[in-house]
Amino acid sequence: MLRDITLGQYYPVDSVLHRLDPRTKLFGTLVYIVTLFIADHILAYIAAAVFLTAAIRLSRVPVKFMVRGLKAVVFLLLISVSFNLFLTPGRPIFTIGFLKMTWEGVEIAAFMSIRLVFLVMGSTLLTLTTTPNQLTDGLERSLGFLKKVGVPVHEVSMMMSIALRFIPILVEETDKIMKAQMARGADFESGNLIQRAKAMVPLLVPLFISAFRRATDLAMAMEARCYRGGEGRTKMKPLHYERRDRMTYLVYLLYFALCVAIRFL
């Protein structure tokens, strides 16, 4: 069940998208998110859908694998959809008590959910095609200018990459502890909210302990290999842009221009 969380997981196949410079992909994701938020017309959503579909096809990651990642946001999606459906003023479709469903609500809810689904799929695609190491390398380089104002960019990106790297490990660990407690008759699925929260204790305590143990072990292992932060640290694989990256930036520019045009025309 927990294996279904695809956010933060890398899908190892060889594709154009996998080979792109991580900075290119980061920037692309940013552009994509911005266009989703300025979109206010169905054409803009179609453009975004085309862009996303093309990216997914190019990534060679099975769509099934991506859709599974959406399960995690279904709950959020349901809440936002129901709020939008019933709490948007406008022409009513029907009313139940104080709840009034409106045409405007349906429209907003539809666009909102498309936006959210696209958003999650877009960012999932980034992590599916980029290893955590590449991702942080890209972030570190892209945000390098912040160093000048005293932001410890390297340290922050190192923390981020460790956090990302630990997601699957902790997920697996959670799965294991859950099973171990279920083998002792623990029940995580039934009962009311308070009972369920209480049932989490046998899961959370061992999980915290193991997370801290892993953290100290990792810190020790890093220090044993003379890690001392970003100062004077060189890269084994320095990032540099290729032709395909420049082409991709061109695609971004065109896509972005299109979305802006749709917005303002």
Binding site: A180, R184, A186, V201, P206, I209
Partner: peptide, 27 residues
């Protein structure tokens, strides 16, 4: 009864006795 690998990683109670009570309590 299934004892997992490194079963000590599943201990969570404040004392040994209460921890051992967890299984039978669930039954």
């Amino acid at each position: 009864g299934l004892v997992f690998q490194y079963p000590e990683h599943q201990l969570f109670e404040t004392d040994v006795f209460t921890d051992v009570c967890f299984g039978p309590k669930n039954l």
